[in-house]
Nucleic acid binder design. Structure first.
Lengths: 197, 197
DNA sequence: CGTTACTGACTGACCAGTCAGTTAGTGAGC
DNA sequence: GCTCACTAACTGACTGGTCAGTCAGTAACG
């Protein structure tokens, strides 16, 4: 069911997504969807919940790597190297379409807020860990995480909307140049100085 | 007519925008809209064109300022200080909704591509000018402009979708810390010590 | 009297959600 | 081992509402 929703979103986008589209992908009737979920919104909120659960599962696997690898891993997961991933863009776009409906639909907004908070705080944790381990210099982890997340998000938005395929890679490079390079403390330097800003 | 479209977008958002909404704002009939514009898409493409013309007019006014002021001016135009601007968020959201339909509607995509290219290249020009004048260090102007634009865009998206009101200001601060501060050459320390906020 | 601006009434398509059912599985009693 | 009752999964046909776009006109203006 969730899988069918995923496929339908990739195939049709969100704005023109109908219950029929999902039903077709699942080889079921629309009536069945309404049997399990009262409204289309209910179904989609359940889908968003399903998504963030999957994200958390996948993220846990990286917890033993070093801060820098984890940071770069995060970036490269948002910037797929191979352009073969057709569904990646389609799905990313569909989710963005959905996000744009959040202000009009409380249920979406609440679930999305949760999802984004989880992602951003995982990223901030990586930065925080890096600072504690003395790999990164002292910065505001939340603010830094937000810059990284929002820049990549903006780039992705640019890519999927107007087809600026190079945008995510360019932004990743710029982040590297301006943020990550300034984040790494010089090797062999002190990992001391607990000075809260 | 364009004004009416603007008001209708603020009031209703894009996804649920009907020709009737626009007609109501203009105190005209929907038939008249179809008399001037064959389809809803045509009307909205004309509206997008109208927007970028207005942007260019307003931007020309800043051409005599210094690079740093222009850069900060650009940022602060995307991050309204006073939270009183209700329409600003509503309209920003509506445009983002529209952008998300670009992949499904060629006419939107072409016009949006033009609009975004104009904005980004104006920003890159500012960086380029700054480098030529020796105020900024040598960086890739397009890449830097993209980082700034996309980060602010991502922040705005976060704000309007899930109500993270602080996002644009946080990102602006992070840009300041990571990008702008590293952009200014130390040269002579001529007029510095300027600590805004 | 021709053109441009404008209207109200209508249509055809689409779609979420309803409803009155059918089918399949599960177990209890005999 | 068979029937009956109960329930969960599922369906097709339908409805009510919405909306872009059409069309046959009218008003205004030069």
């Amino acid at each position: 069911m969730m899988e069918a929703t995923y496929r339908a979103l990739c195939a049709n986008g969100f704005a023109s997504l109908t219950m029929q589209d999902i039903a077709d992908e699942a080889d079921k009737s629309t009536s069945l969807l309404h049997y399990h979920y009262d409204t289309k919104q209910d179904l989609l909120v359940a889908f968003l919940r399903y998504l963030i659960e999957r994200f958390e599962e996948r993220f846990e696997d990286t917890e033993d790597e070093g801060p820098e690898e984890r940071l770069r891993g995060f970036v490269s997961r948002m910037v797929p190297d191979d352009d073969g991933e057709d569904d990646y863009d389609r799905f990313g776009l569909a989710i963005m379409e959905l996000r744009m409906q959040a202000p009009y639909e409380d249920a979406y907004r609440e679930q999305l807020r949760t999802n984004e908070a989880v992602i951003r705080s995982r990223l901030a944790d990586v930065v925080r860990d890096g600072i504690e381990e003395g790999v990164f210099r002292e910065v505001d982890p939340d603010r830094t995480a937000r810059l990284v997340f929002d820049a990549l998000d903006g780039a992705r938005s640019e890519r999927v909307t107007v087809g600026a395929d190079e945008a995510p890679a360019e932004v990743a490079a710029a982040l590297d140049e301006f943020v990550f390079s300034s984040l790494l403390v010089a090797e062999g330097e002190a990992d001391e100085g607990d000075e809260t800003e």
